[in-house]
Design a protein around this nucleic acid. Structure first.
Lengths: 399, 399
DNA sequence: GTGAAAGCGCTAACAC
DNA sequence: GTGTTAGCGCTTTCAC
């Protein structure tokens, strides 16, 4: 005999109550006598009854699902590992609130259509968009009668009509500035990963300058070097700074790739990091920890970004209150390039953009102290062999 | 007046037909006179009717959703970028087949429970599990009446009861062997990223040996160096090989992290790569392209893995035919460490584990040829500043 | 505290 | 080709 999955009617019949009563027990809604509740619970257990999500969605008018749209600008492949942290954060929050998370990739200019069509009729109760276009923000501002609520993840103007969450480049800049000031550095230079006018670099630089100006240590305009977004240009600019008549005590790169090039320029000039000049970056790329010296950098939590977006969206869905926007704070990852002494090996940040093995061969206690021999790292030798154990731990591709 | 979303009944009434007829038009099912179809189409358009997915799920008994479970072994953070490629592939295929993709993280030992409870009643029509435990495979083998179909992604025995897809380490090993043989290398050594007995390394090594043996070029047992999964050990082993009385013409590392350490060992011995000895790896980590020299390596497509898993699952769902398992072929990424001449800059692999900017500031034509000056890369200087432009392109954390 | 009735919006099965 | 009937399994509303 084929045993059909038990329905709410089966439970009700067995318990000798109405389906409504069972529904109340299942959803913890309304007043139920403790005795009835207990009896029904037992029967549910016995019959192996599980609510049918689809049916309750239809009847209740809420699917308890959220759509997560990952935007892929033309020609770009949406496999930035940072996204995965965002997804993980979103999924974690969804699970906690007992929502399903429906994921979908889409070109940025199709997002609006997506809300109307694909996710249009009851499939999801709201949408989170990763890195939406600015014009989406405008389109999603108005909350019409049948419009799904939306929360954006990315960089939007403060007066954005649509709620959003973003990383806080400004707090990142401040954090870094404070740390450099604590080191006693007074003369700094900044090498940017882009020309002026690009949001993330602008914000990082501005925050840095503000913090120094607040201490009456204004940074000269000449000490801010914008680039054309290429590494060779960054290298030239870094050389200029380092070989100037009065080299800075610290160089801030506005991202880690740029920081790497700065490190090279400094070395090529015959100076040492951090003894002669400190270097810091932004983003905490997986390789930042492996550089020589390991790079002090600012990290933003994708996990928190995803979690926060879902939190806001679900709150909006369930209470109807407008979601509101937020910038999530940065965190400083102190390694050696800033001049700090060798740090004890840190546990990997549970929420950071860390690569991990698919092979399940991870071992707990294999992290060794990072190399500190100060010797030049050889070609192709990076990282230093003493630098880290457990290669399997970070390998990619072993499924 | 609040304009309610049009239902199938609205369309039917307006068209003067039954709801069933409208349903047929919408789903392209059954024979409909061209005229009726056209009229209904027009009315659908006019009314802005969109099918209610939930309602059709309930009525049709199929949700047109697939659950994607991402397994996180204890204490490990599931943010391996390789996963993101898998997710992307899965999502792409789901979209093509018009399925929704519900994503969910879970400890490996809860996957079985997940199938029964969370995804149990109609929420999804099938499940894909990333890196399930071996015992899940057994549990999912039996296809009972109410059991959701499952496809696994990962390494399972050939006689696995449950259909799975996996990367083909064996083809990867062969590919690499063929290439080394084409270079004319006869004497090779292998440095493994793990002890013997670990599936991925075992398979890679075995395939390599088989290919060489087939040419009557057996690899000596002493030339296979297993490690304790730590980089320092790999470094020691690599030194042993390189400093032996007859150093090999090529060294295969079973993953890229290990390959990096091998590169260092070779340099520390005063030899050059690839002139004195060639080096190749596995996995194509994002950094492989940036090493000096750029690393020739074997890559597996996470995208294809995800796509294939969904393809099989959906086929199983729609036809009822058993899904069957497969190993997806590897691809060789030829750079310079194998002795090949400098390659022209390649477009980023659209499906590979590539990091990309969140900032949307990507520029098209900024890729420059990789550095080939042959100079030692300085401490912390990696990559060479000429090596690559467009730092923003690979930055992480700019949302 | 509990129950009865009336759908949610759609599709399956069969009739015509 | 098209319509009719009967649900899918649950929640909502209101009655008692």
């Amino acid at each position: 005999m084929v045993r059909r999955q038990a329905t709410i009617a089966d439970v009700a019949r067995t318990a000798g109550v109405s389906r409504q009563t069972v529904s109340r027990v299942v959803n913890n809604k309304g007043e139920i006598s403790a005795q009835t509740r207990q009896r029904i619970r037992a029967i549910i257990e016995e019959l192996g009854y599980r609510p049918h999500v689809i049916a309750s969605s239809l009847a209740g008018g809420r699917s308890r699902h959220i759509g997560l749209v990952i935007t892929n600008p033309a020609e770009e492949v949406p496999t930035n590992p940072f996204f995965l942290s965002v997804i993980y954060g979103a999924s974690t929050e969804a699970e906690k609130r007992e929502y399903g998370l429906v994921i979908r990739y889409a070109p940025a200019d199709e997002v609006i259509r997506l809300r109307e069509n694909v996710f249009g009729r009851g499939q999801v109760d709201g949408i989170v968009v990763l890195r939406a276009h600015r014009d989406c923000a405008a389109a999603f501002g108005g909350r019409g009668p049948d419009q799904l609520p939306v929360v954006l993840v990315g960089d939007f103007p403060p007066d954005c009509q649509c709620p959003f969450v973003d990383i806080d480049n400004t707090s990142g800049g401040h954090l870094l500035a404070e740390h450099l000031l604590e080191h006693g550095y007074r003369r700094i230079a900044v090498v940017c990963h882009s020309p002026a006018g690009h949001a993330s670099a602008d914000r990082r630089v501005q925050a840095l300058l503000d913090a120094f100006r607040l201490r009456d240590l204004p940074v000269a305009r000449e000490a801010i070097l914008w680039t054309d977004s290429t590494l060779p240009d960054a290298y030239r600019k870094a050389l200029t700074v380092v070989r100037g008549c009065r080299p800075p005590q610290a160089i801030v790169a506005t991202n880690d790739w740029t920081a790497m090039v700065v490190l090279r320029a400094i070395h090529d000039t015959g100076l040492r990091v951090p003894e002669d000049v400190a270097v810091v970056g932004f983003d905490d790329l997986p390789l930042a920890a492996y550089l020589e010296p390991p790079l002090t950098t600012v990290v933003f939590s994708g996990f928190d970004l995803g979690r926060s977006a879902l939190e806001r969206l679900i709150c909006r869905i369930e209470t109807g209150a407008p979601a509101g926007s937020a910038h999530l704070p940065a965190r400083l990852v102190i390694r050696r390039s800033c001049g700090c002494p060798l740090q004890p090996p840190l546990e990997p940040d549970p929420f950071g953009p860390v690569e991990l093995s698919l092979s399940g061969e991870r071992r707990g206690a294999e992290l060794l102290p990072l190399a500190s021999d100060g010797l030049p790292v050889a070609p192709g030798s990076w990282p230093a062999p003493e630098a880290r154990s457990s290669p399997g731990q970070r390998s990619i591709g072993n499924v």
